[in-house]
Design a binder for these strands. Structure first.
Lengths: 349, 349
DNA sequence: TTCGCCGACTAAACCGGTATAGGTTTGCCC
DNA sequence: GGGCAAACCTATACCGGTTTAGTCGGCGAA
């Protein structure tokens, strides 16, 4: 209140040189103190940090990027038809989870939405050659996924969402979704269903084929044969088509296990449209537990995925990989079946 | 195939200095040629670019950022409860639209998902002080929105999604959503409905209050009084609650206009749960035309928004603002009513 | 012929950090 | 008391572009 002090003397950004001068040390030492590295006396370090604080100095991200060859950002590339993407709430929740660990670290998330795989590979290359990110999340793993080799070649630190079907140099953060499918089948079998069908996701996608396998083996284990399977691309439209096909048969299944919630919800809609009651005439289960699942009628019996938790774990793992050069695989708790109203005992006969 | 040529001689990144040497000019001139500025002879420029091409030179984004004080990235901050966010497909489509214009320009999108407004303001400040972005999109405009002043103070180029209710220094990219609401009311009135209710979004949000006003004035214009209105926060849960409240009344409305699709879909669920038939006993309309709208039963009569187009327009406008220092407001074509099965003539009586 | 000016181009400073090769102290040991 | 190493710290060269202050040659006007 009493001094016409500096501190507002100029709106020019304060730099490391200002801090160094004010603290009576060299730029280099300020840098060392900031990144707390050995070789700085404790009291000197304290003084430097205090001066920095007083001057309100924030090291320039840009300068840091240039000299340290890091970018302080992580990347996520999503390859999907935007139209289809919209109905899948996975990514928004996943990203929210990622943010919870990035934000406190001062890291940013660079997001790309691209239409196809070729563009996706190109995007990774650009991301690397621009030095835009320090690492990426690899999602929607596919069978024999070309992106793994691409990212390995690029030398870009990566965390895969799920364990690839091929040798991979990257840590995987996975959630066991086969358990939930098996639980679904057991639940339905326990209710008395014998003709259970599966609307599978794309067999080219790892979680699609894995859930399908889980379905088959659970069916066999329950002594129900292989069960009828219709493959889709995970889209709502495809799910609706599959449901229509299954339910229009002479002897339709009494229960359908859908590989994701959007398709299951479309399935409920198709059944109703056909005058088939859910769950009296056909039981339906989904996978994901998206918010809609609780609010459609009947409420969807589904398997609860936790994209937010997944995002958090993936971000923590990627951060560890980048900082220490290595990271272990992480296995999240298996997704569990959530019982609501869309599955019940089959109609007699 | 025949020459053991260079080009792979060293994996070291080729820099502007390499290009300059190879082309026999100075670094500065290469820079001038690259950013095609006056003062370079046409043939010299051509030669430089050709050498750059031959050497496979890509200017370092980091170096460019440092010296030019730009970051070649745009930002989008979303403040929402991640749980609620997931059910709203708006952003994924919007982002996809944004990407279609950013990608060809070599720009990246930095995305932040934050839990509340205070964090959002802080995020903008960090984004600016880190020089992380060259501009941002401001979405989910609120009444008397504090973010506008904040962004103006920060001097961050901004495009608002919709026209704010206060003086704003920023260009607005808007879509008229009142038209669609009015169309909905007229459609329902034309079918013979007299008791029409509105499940409004948050009155604190601009599109919430605007749609509500549009509803009210359309009702009056149709000579149907003010109509019953329930305010929500746009969330599915709130929409379900509102529907339950409305439909449990002694004299429930025969039609409900929902401020968005997720709430409308929840509304259909609630009605079915209560044993109220849609559309026989109650007609329902939504807003957004999310993908689910086509696949629930009955298919949702709703107003078609076009987030992808919006994203494209917003990105183009923001780009223009950043590059030329100014940009005009853009008005997208009004959202139109899409008639499906969830609204029909009311039951007699 | 000479001056002035303009367009093309060069050299070097600069952006704001990081990294590294020295320089001082200081303390300890023989 | 000289020798030496560890602990601290400084000076300076980067990182790879952009930008500015000049340099230089040539041409039109005086």
């Amino acid at each position: 209140m009493q001094s016409t002090q500096d501190s507002v003397k100029s709106s020019a950004k304060v730099t490391i040189a200002d801090v160094a001068r004010e603290a009576g040390v060299s730029k280099g030492l300020v840098s060392f103190a900031l990144n707390d590295r050995p070789g700085v006396a404790a009291d000197t370090r304290a003084r430097i940090l205090q001066v920095a604080e007083a001057l309100g100095w924030t090291p320039s991200l840009r300068a840091r990027s240039l000299s340290s060859k890091r970018s302080f950002a992580l990347g996520l590339v999503i390859a999907r038809d935007p139209e289809v993407l919209g109905s899948d709430p996975f990514f928004t929740s996943f990203i929210a989870g990622v943010e919870t660990v990035l934000a406190p670290e001062g890291l940013a998330l660079v997001l790309s939405v691209v239409p196809d795989e070729e563009t996706e590979l190109q995007t990774y290359r650009t991301l690397v050659s621009d030095g835009r990110v320090d690492g990426v999340f690899l999602s929607d793993l596919r069978i024999d996924d070309a992106r793994i080799q691409c990212l390995a070649d690029l030398g870009l630190p990566t965390v895969t969402l799920g364990r690839p079907d091929q040798p991979s140099p990257f840590p995987a953060v996975s959630i066991d979704d086969t358990h939930g499918i098996a639980e679904s089948v057991r639940h339905l079998a326990g209710l008395g269903h014998r003709r259970i069908a599966h609307v599978a996701g794309s067999p080219a996608m790892l979680h699609g084929s894995r859930r399908q396998e889980a379905f088959t083996s659970a069916m066999r284990a329950a002594g129900l044969g292989d069960g009828q399977i219709v493959e889709t691309d995970f889209s709502i439209a495809a799910g609706a088509d599959a449901a229509r096909r299954l339910l229009s048969q002479p002897e339709p299944p009494t229960a359908i296990v859908f590989a994701n919630d959007p398709m299951a919800i479309a399935g409920i809609g198709v059944a109703q449209e056909l005058g088939i009651r859910v769950p009296e005439d056909v039981s339906i289960t989904g996978f994901d537990d998206i918010e809609f699942a609780r609010y459609v009628y009947p409420a969807l019996t589904t398997v609860g995925a936790t994209p937010l938790v997944w995002g958090r774990a993936a971000a923590a793992t990627l951060l560890g990989l980048i900082r220490t050069g290595g990271a272990d695989d992480v296995d999240l708790p298996a997704a569990r079946l959530i019982i609501r109203g869309s599955a019940s005992v089959p109609a007699p006969g």
